[in-house]
């Protein structure tokens, strides 16, 4: 991500330090991760210490300091999905793609996340791949779902 793009985002927020989280969110959503150089640029332009930026960037689950895979898998582990078998579902996903939550596969095909109840408790347990919900899914069907994502 080049400085011009980052500057554009910062300018949109009038370069105010209080917009730090909003700026980081926009960089994350455009670039899918927060490169070190981007954080340094934000620090310089908003006049916010890098320590504070790094704390925020590691505090929120949405931010990633490493590149994300082409496809983002989200396994809901909220309370309702939990009692409906989310743990077994998560185990299956981990076994299939060989990474744990918070990680990205070495071929950059998948990133895996858990948590954040998505408010679709009627559909649990579910996995969401690139925003598409696969609801009331049995562990046996996960492989079938994932093979559509290269």
């Amino acid at each position: 991500m080049d400085n011009a793009r980052i500057d554009r985002i910062i300018d949109k927020h009038q370069g105010e330090a209080s917009s730090l989280i909003q700026v980081l969110l926009e960089i994350q959503s455009e670039n899918h991760w927060l490169p070190k150089e981007a954080l340094e640029r934000v620090s310089e332009k908003l006049q916010v210490p890098l320590t504070r930026i790094r704390h925020i960037a590691t505090f929120y689950k949405t931010f990633s300091l490493i590149p994300k895979g082409r496809h983002e898998i989200h396994v809901c582990t909220g309370s309702s999905c939990h009692v409906r078998g989310a743990t077994r579902l998560l185990d299956t996903v981990q076994d299939l793609i060989g990474i744990r939550p918070g990680e990205t596969s070495s071929d950059l095909r998948f990133s895996l996340e858990t948590g954040n109840c998505l408010g679709c408790c009627a559909l649990g347990p579910e996995i969401v791949v690139d925003g598409k919900h696969h609801s009331k899914i049995a562990p046996d069907n996960v492989e079938d779902v994932l093979k559509d994502y290269d």
């Binding site: 105010e16 330090a17 209080s18 917009s19 730090l20 989280i21 909003q22 969110l25 916010v48 504070r52 704390h55 925020i56 505090f59 929120y60 689950k61 949405t62 931010f63 954040n116």
Partner: peptide
């Protein structure tokens, strides 16, 4: 906008976030 870790809904934490702080 925020991204929901649970504690950010606590009122003083939420206000810190609006200030652009952790």
């Amino acid at each position: 906008l925020d991204i929901g870790i649970f504690v950010s809904g606590e009122s003083s934490a939420l206000m810190r976030s609006i200030e652009g702080k952790n």
